[in-house]
Amino acid sequence: MSDILALIVAKYNFWLYIILMMIGLYAMIAKNNLMKKLVGMNIFQTAIILFYVSIGYKHGATLPIIQGGHGGHSAHDVVIHAADYINPLPHVLMLTAIVVSVATFGVAMALCVRIYQRYQTLEEDELRMRVSERITHE
């Protein structure tokens, strides 16, 4: 039992992202309202962004900005230890991923507006009913 606890505590960032991801996935599958599904989708994507952000972190490290790199000394004079700085690459990658998720969210919201204008509802069961009504009318 304590082994499992130790495992969870040592890798808590992994457990957190998995819990968040599952909350998002649950909302996407189980919720009836399209907006709630979209929120679930956003939580799902954010979980992965947080996962990436957490893997760049190091204990006792600071922002990857080299102190004294400008001014009197050139950057080459300063001794740089990689262990002193957190890894900026995953964070930079996530800037792109955030843009992607915002864009997806925007497109999805625009589609929701379209659907609402057409059917006056965003509840999935009602939508299904109205779509099938429309087909039988034709």
């Binding site: 992965i48 996962f51 497109v107 057409r118």
Partner: peptide, 27 residues
């Protein structure tokens, strides 16, 4: 006009899951 936005929205939900899995794998 009647069904394409709904089909596209369903595609988004599933497509996002697919892309996110890939992104996670790359992580």
């Amino acid at each position: 006009k009647d069904r394409a936005p709904l089909a596209a929205l369903n595609y988004i939900f599933i497509g996002v899951i697919g892309a996110s899995f890939y992104l996670l794998g790359v992580g």
